[in-house]
């Protein structure tokens, strides 16, 4: 609008200095009355008007007034006079802010979402580890009750056999690649163990101690190919030797060769250790297994029977090492009467 207003007037020649105005020289420079601004060049017709330069600089009085207004606002506020104004503005702006927040919540929730992703991931990790721990305890629960049962059985066995045993746990099982059925116990010489002691568990004969260190013992299982045990068929009292087959796997069988060629063991006959008075490698009367098969060959001079051990060698855990009476070590001893003698503290 201003452009069009100015255009017809712009060709009009400005007032010449030679024509004195009423106010003299200063007035001569001033535009004619009604024209408050100097004439400017018209804008290009094609250009869309961008702003206008009606007042490039604000009057000084306005600046001063506004600065003073700001200062007086501060002073009024410092004096507490603006509290009602604040309250009125808050009454309007508060709901508006909550509306804006509600509209913007999807936007503002985005970083929160990212943050909570991280928090959730932490939660998941924490819960997962907690879950694992609980699951481990749950998995160990039957183990614990089995151990209790094993202790029970072991103490019953010792009562039945009349021997004192040192309880020990199988902590290591020799690899099958070594072709030797040996296990490691967590008790050693400090517990009163020494080589050539009989190792039993609640089911029956496990093996004998090969060697001991201070805190461990290596046990040769009866299923090992090198193992020879004197056995006696319970029903006939026939004696013979039991040899391990050295088979890999938990279900090793034993071969019983009876000394008496004419004796024929019956199926399901129980075989117990023969034993020796000196309590040599094997004490007497420990159940070994039962006869599952009798093989009689012409060429062989003795009867041969297959014995399935009572002990599950694949699940060995608590065993007892038969020790002489009065043995004391750093761990308890289950006496022959089933009582537990606590170990001496070192």
């Amino acid at each position: 609008m201003t452009v069009l207003d100015l255009r017809p007037r712009s060709p009009e020649p400005p007032e010449r200095p030679g024509r004195p105005g009423p106010g003299g020289r200063d007035d001569a420079r001033r535009p004619r009355e009604g024209r408050r601004r100097p004439v400017r060049l018209p804008r290009p017709a094609t250009g869309r008007g961008w702003g206008d330069d009606r007042e490039p600089t604000p009057p000084r009085s306005l600046v001063v007034a506004l600065v003073l207004a700001a200062a007086s606002l501060m002073a009024l506020d410092a004096a507490g006079a603006l509290a009602p104004v604040r309250g009125a503005v808050a009454a309007v702006a508060g709901p508006a802010e909550s509306a804006v927040s509600a509209v913007a919540r999807p936007l503002t929730a985005a970083p929160d979402w990212v943050r909570s992703q991280g928090a959730l991931r932490d939660d998941v990790a924490r819960l997962r580890s907690e879950n694992d721990a609980l699951r481990g305890r749950l998995a160990a629960a039957p183990y614990a009750s089995n151990r209790l049962r094993e202790y029970d059985g072991l103490s019953r066995l010792t009562g039945r056999l009349g021997y004192a045993v040192v309880p020990a746990h199988v902590v290591g099982i020799g690899p099958a690649q070594s072709f030797a059925d040996t296990v490691t116990l967590d008790a050693g010489s400090a517990a009163g163990l020494r080589p050539d002691l009989t190792v039993v568990n609640a089911q029956g004969l496990v093996g004998r101690v090969l060697s001991v260190t201070r805190s461990t013992a290596t046990v040769l299982l009866v299923t090992d190919a090198d193992s020879v045990v004197g056995g006696r068929v319970g029903t006939t009292m026939d004696v013979g030797t039991l040899r391990g087959r050295g088979e890999v796997g938990p279900h090793g069988l034993l071969d019983l060769e009876l000394v008496d060629r004419d004796a024929t063991p019956a199926r399901d006959d129980a075989v117990v250790t023969w034993g020796s008075q000196g309590r040599g490698p094997y004490v007497a009367g420990v159940p070994i297994g039962r006869v599952t098969k009798v093989v009689s060959s012409v060429r062989e001079t003795a009867q041969r029977a297959e014995i399935e051990p009572y002990v599950d060698f694949g699940a060995l855990d608590l065993v007892g090492v038969v020790v002489p009476d009065g043995t004391r070590g750093d761990r308890g001893v289950i006496e022959a009467d089933g009582t537990l003698v606590p170990g001496e503290a070192r």
Partner: peptide
Amino acid sequence: LVPPADHLV
């Protein structure tokens, strides 16, 4: 004046 403002107006 808008609410969370606590400074001098």
